[in-house]
Design a protein around this nucleic acid. Structure first.
Length: 284
DNA sequence: CACCATGTTCCTTG
DNA sequence: CCAAGGAACATGGT
């Protein structure tokens, strides 16, 4: 589920829901997602603290909390990994199988669930260090991005996943942005011309902004199971209308006709990740 | 059984 | 020191 747009939609959804709620109790069911924070540290920090709001940085969610009687806020950092979800759930409902952390916030539980446990739910801000610029925050420094791309001979698709160069782009939107810009994912990043990088940045911004706009139209209390809140599906739950697929022009469309020229979309592997492209529309 | 999956980090190699 | 490649993490879907 999570690249920049999915996280942004979730953040906007959760912000008003958690604001002013106070953590009554903390249950850690999968210690490893806290790393390097310990369960004791998390409990000590969160119990009695009140949510001030939720922000996003790259693919991270930042929950700002404040302890009563103090003025400073501190962040709780969440990353969804590949399969993480965060949602409010009625207390009487059964916990999902892979609930990693459960915060009692009064009437409901705030649940961090993660099937594969690749995500994080931590007080450690270390992983925020070194993140590159936000592509949707003006002004994005295209010049600096161009200079950074000049320093590597790796394929441009691979560089788009480098969170120190540009923050929040993941495997889906990297392919989508390159298709939109008409640039082959195989191009050496140091061989891109300045005008191409300008076009690529524009495409990245458009693709991400459209995904946020689209995601915002999905009712977030919708779910395949009808029991959860705060979900923005990437995949299509059976019984869900298929809004998602139609937006993606190349990702996961291997063998299907290109929407522009009807040529078959190709899939290949770069840096151990799938890349999708149209060999005709993305000649160079 | 095989291969695939929205992500990051760590280790090795050059 | 850096860049690049690959494995690891862990579970589930097809």
């Amino acid at each position: 589920m999570p690249e920049l747009p999915e996280v942004e939609v979730l953040v906007r959804h959760l912000d008003p829901l958690v604001k002013r709620k106070t953590v009554r109790a903390v249950e850690v069911r999968r210690e490893k997602v806290l790393r390097p924070t310990t369960p004791d540290q998390l409990r000590a920090a969160l119990t009695g603290a009140t949510f001030q709001g939720v922000r996003r940085r790259a693919k991270f969610l930042l929950f700002d909390l404040r302890r009563t009687g103090t003025k400073e806020t501190f962040p709780l950092i969440a990353h969804l990994g590949m399969t993480g979800r965060i949602f409010l759930q009625a207390k009487q409902a059964a916990l999902p199988k892979h609930a990693a952390v459960v915060l009692d916030v009064g009437r409901a539980n705030l649940i961090f669930e993660d099937t594969r446990y690749f995500g994080r739910f931590t007080l450690d801000t270390g992983s925020l260090q070194g993140l590159g610029p936000e592509p949707l925050t003006d002004p994005f420094d295209t010049e600096a991005f161009f200079t950074a791309l000049k320093r590597s001979g790796q394929p441009v698709k691979v560089k788009l996943l480098d969170q120190t160069l540009i923050a929040g782009v993941g495997n889906i939107y990297a392919s989508e942005a390159l298709f939109r810009a008409g640039i082959s994912p195989k191009r050496s990043s140091d061989k891109l011309k300045s005008v191409e990088v300008v076009a690529l940045v524009k495409s990245i911004r458009e693709v991400l902004a459209e995904a946020i706009r689209f995601g915002s139209t999905i009712p977030l209390d919708y779910s395949g199971t009808g029991k959860r809140d705060g979900l923005f599906y990437y995949g299509k739950p059976e019984d869900a209308p298929d809004f998602y697929e139609e937006r993606l022009l190349v990702y996961d469309r291997a063998g299907l006709p290109c929407t522009k020229c009807r040529t078959q979309i190709k899939r290949f592997v770069q840096a151990a990740r799938s890349t999708y492209h149209c060999p005709v529309c993305q000649k160079r």
